[in-house]
């Protein structure tokens, strides 16, 4: 098995995504016809840079997990392109990267540590499974599994022969991380990897992820609804709303100078640990709307305090705020027709 190697140099994005789209038909009625379409991911474009951790945040149902499953190709694209280190993914032509080769370089860790392990296999065998399929001998694969168990902090002598139900949630998540690393991937997609863990265990796993990334030269896409965790682990942050990217940028720009009203509301919704700074007014009212029939123009307009006519008429384009900080709001684009367009927005969180 050849190790996965860098090709295009450090400046070339590891993964360039353009116009990713996934719509799910909802069947109904007597004849199982399509009665509606969930626009789960709707024209999403961004780059994953080499060696970075890109955080993805947004409310439940905004399309984070669907994006993740597109990235690892557990789901096929309805439209869009994926270019991995210069090679188009899934193109049968000589220039492209076959799906099988792509999948070896991109692995995923899920939130539910239990459901993603085979309950009837000792954890060592679960980790060794994929390397064996990819041509490693039994002993080589087991050797790698034990190395990885040690790397994720589970002493092989004590843990290798245990079954998933003999482990705590935090330990199982360590096994899932080890398994994701077994094919020596370059990119790991982590979908809510610590959300089901208690805080003291969450901190252990976050420290581990930071170590492993360094040690194995990894690039992470880290999905979470916990904005504090995303701030801790990410270099850049992408904010999604109803299947679209509304803002992306360096972590400090997003947290200190959020430009999109939705990003600001998300940040302001974090509970404060200091009772002297309790909120009195909720930053947003209502639940996120349904991605079936999203609003016209700016999808956030039904909950946005700054919405004007132009927001219903025109879809905002991503405005460049410098340093790779982009926000898709008419207020950020001079001449968009919004009365506050181009004005420096007061940042009040």
């Amino acid at each position: 098995m050849e190790p996965n190697q860098d090709r295009g140099g450090p400046a070339q994005p590891l993964l360039a995504l353009r116009g990713l789209t996934k719509h799910f038909p909802i069947k109904g009625g007597l004849f199982g016809t399509t009665v509606a379409t969930v626009r789960a991911v709707d024209g999403v474009s961004f780059d994953v840079l080499k060696g970075e951790t890109l955080g993805i945040v947004g409310e439940s149902g905004c399309g984070k997990s669907t994006t993740a499953r597109l990235l690892v190709q557990l789901l096929g694209l309805d439209a869009g392109t994926m270019v991995f280190d210069g090679e188009a993914v899934g193109e049968p032509r000589a220039s492209g990267l076959a799906l099988r080769d792509y999948r070896r370089q991109v692995q995923m860790v899920f939130q539910d540590s239990y459901a993603s392990l085979n309950p009837r296999l000792p954890i060592e065998d679960s980790i060794a499974f994929a390397p064996k399929v990819h041509g490693l001998s039994e002993s080589e694969a087991n050797e790698r599994a034990r190395e990885l168990l040690a790397a994720v902090g589970l002493a092989p002598a004590q843990f290798a022969r245990r079954y998933p139900h003999e482990l705590s949630g935090g330990q199982r998540q360590r096994v899932n991380i080890a398994r994701a690393l077994a094919l020596q991937p370059r990119l790991v997609i982590l979908d809510e990897p610590v959300s089901a863990l208690d805080k003291s265990v969450e901190a252990q796993v976050l420290n581990l992820l930071v170590d492993l990334k360094q040690k194995f030269n990894l690039t992470f896409v880290f999905i979470s609804h916990d904005l504090n965790v995303v701030q801790f682990i990410s270099d850049r942050v992408l904010v999604m709303y109803l299947g679209e990217v509304v803002e992306i940028g360096p972590v400090d720009a997003i947290y200190d100078r959020p430009a999109h009203p939705y990003t600001r509301a998300l940040l302001a919704s974090r509970p404060s640990m200091d009772p002297a700074f309790r909120r009195t007014v909720p930053p947003l009212v209502g639940d996120p709307p349904n991605p079936v029939n999203p609003p016209s123009g700016c999808r956030f307009r039904t909950r946005c305090g700054f919405a004007e006519d132009v927001c219903a008429a025109k879809k905002p384009v991503a405005a460049d705020l410098g340093d790779g900080h982009l926000a898709a709001c008419h207020m950020a684009t001079p001449g968009s027709g919004h009365s506050k367009a181009g004005a420096i927005m007061e940042v009040a969180i």
């Binding site: 935090g170 265990v201 901190a203 420290n207 965790v229 682990i233």
Partner: peptide, 22 residues
């Protein structure tokens, strides 16, 4: 330990304090 291991504010670049064991 619980308070120290809870990620809050800007703790980027720091090693999080954990409570060992279970």
């Amino acid at each position: 330990g619980l308070l120290n291991s809870t990620v809050h504010g800007n703790m980027r670049g720091k090693v999080l304090t954990t409570i060992p064991g279970a």
